[in-house]
Structures are given as C-alpha cells and as structure tokens.
Nucleic acid binder design. Structure first.
Lengths: 157, 157
DNA sequence: ATTGAAAGGTGTTGGCC
DNA sequence: GGCCAACACCTTTCAAT
C-alpha cells in the first residue's frame, strides 16, 4: 500500500495544506478538502507511511537564537573526490551555524548558508571551519541583507 | 506576557525538539523535558503567542512534486533601488519553482534556489521569469548536485 | 509547577454503502 | 474507495493546591 500509491487531487491538497501549516488539525483539514474526519486521517497516515510526507519542523524566531547575521559562503574546492566532498557536506550541515549547503556546478563548488551572532563569530566560523580545510581553495563571503523562504513545494506538473 | 518573556533551558529544549519534529505530542515532549503535561502545553502556547515559535511546516518528497532538478540562479542587478528589489524578492518567492531567495553583498546581488521538472522547464523559468526583467543584468545558473538542510536552529550563545 | 477534571479532538477499527 | 459510529487515548484549559 505504500510503494505504488496513486495520488489524487485531495492527496496533493493535504500535502499543500500541511506544508503551509504543519499544525493543522484533522478536523480543519478534512473540512477544507471535503472529506470526513476518518477518511482524512487515513490519507494522512498513508502519505506519511509511503514517505511522501517526510517530516515536519517548527520554525523559530532567529534573534532569540542569537542568529543576528546571515551569510553565504561561496567556495571553490581543489579536488572533487566524491567521498571527501560528501563527508564535508554531511559534516558542515551539523554545525549549529549552518542552515543549508549546496554542491553545485559552475564558478563555485559549494554554497553554504550560515548564520552568526556577529562579525567576530562569522570570522571565526569561516576561518576555523572552512578556510581551515586543505581542499578548500577559496571562500567568498556574501553577507545576506534579506532572505525569503517558500515552505510550500507545489506540484510542478 | 508575550513581549518580555524570559526563556530558560526548558523553553530552548522545547523549541529544539519541535524544530526536529513538529509532530511531537505534548505527552512525549513533557516526558523529554521533565515537566508535567499541562505545564508543557502552557509553555508551548506562550512560546507561540510570543512569536518565538513562528510556524510549522510539513516537508514532502520532492520527486512526487515533479521537482527533479535543482539549481541556484546567481544574479546581478543593474540598479539597487530598494522598492524594486524588495518587490522582486516578494514576487519570485511566490513562484512555485522558487524555494528561497537571498539578497546579498559581493559579486552577486541576488541568489535564488529553484527546482524544476527538467532542463526545458528550468530554461523557461530562467528566461521568462528572470532574464526577462530589465534590471537583471546577468544570471549565472549553477546546477545543484546535492543539497542538505538543517531544520534546527540552535542557540548560538 | 502540579494535580485532577471537563470538554473536545484524534486515531483506529468494524460495519455499511 | 468513502462514510459513520464507537472507543480509548491525548490535548487543552481551568481551578485549586
């Protein structure tokens, strides 16, 4: 029942509403999509079991966490040995300051989105966690004036 | 009660656990932090009312949404008139293909994280929504091989 | 902060259309 | 498949300690 589940419009609606608001209750959700409470709960359960709904996460205010500055590190790597790069990506995303990391083609090789308390913190982060590593040949730091995030991925078809 | 709330370690624990798993129930949460059910529910309610916990969002599998490709658009703008740029940021993050957008200092001016079904889709997106606009002077498209996201913002102090 | 109670929501299951 | 009813469990809010 989980692998080859066929999704209809109501399943996509459920996923859209739960992306917009992860705290939406079954009662409200069922009212919106026009199904009974139990039918809706069933679908949500199946969508989770099938892995189509992966997880949910609360979003907290940044300042309360001391994240007053945001930046992008645009980095170039020396050797693109897959193992090293994959391990590097896994490692950095564990750092409390790292929000996301992208392994990319083009002028840069890795783009990392970080937060920091202040410039001193950012400097220490850059030097002690990145400049540090021998396979990183260059880091360009772009300060972020403003960032916006869409938390809802809609069907593109 | 909402503005100048003093947060203790248990409040930070609550926020950490709810960032890791937005579906955590009060019962489980209270057991983890060592408080009674109702005390925990109270704290969560206050944290939400104070705006420290802003929202929650389910995360869905990308392929099911047809998002098979990911890219970064690294863009340079002609004139940095604040109104135009702010409006531009607001607009693009509404597009279904745009996951996030960063207004930054440095070599680039705006970095946009997008998804697309395929190369044709990506090309149309780039040309019809970005290259299009008169104030965008250059776009560099970096394909994303892999991306990782931390959904938990820890206190940096 | 805790306990206990009341009211309402949840999630599951079984019977039925 | 969806619906309904029923049941056990959990949540939320309140007052009292």
């Amino acid at each position: 029942m989980s692998e080859n589940m066929v999704l209809d419009r109501k399943d996509y609606l459920i996923m859209q509403f739960l992306q917009e608001n992860g705290w939406l209750q079954t009662k409200e959700l069922s009212a919106r999509i026009g199904l009974s409470n139990s039918a809706t709960a069933q679908r949500v359960k199946l969508l989770k079991e099938a892995g189509y709904i992966e997880s949910a996460h609360a979003v907290v205010q940044r300042d309360i966490m001391g994240a007053h500055l945001e930046a992008l590190f645009l980095m170039e790597l020396d050797k693109h040995d897959e193992e090293i790069v994959e391990e590097f990506m896994r490692e950095i995303v564990q750092l409390p300051e790292v929000l996301s990391a992208f392994l990319v083609t083009g002028r840069h090789d890795v783009v990392v989105n970080v937060v920091a308390q202040d410039m001193l913190h950012l400097k220490k982060l850059a030097f002690e966690q990145f400049t540090n590593r021998p396979f990183i040949t260059r880091i360009e730091t772009s300060m972020v004036y403003a960032s916006r995030h869409s938390r809802v991925l809609q069907p593109l078809m």
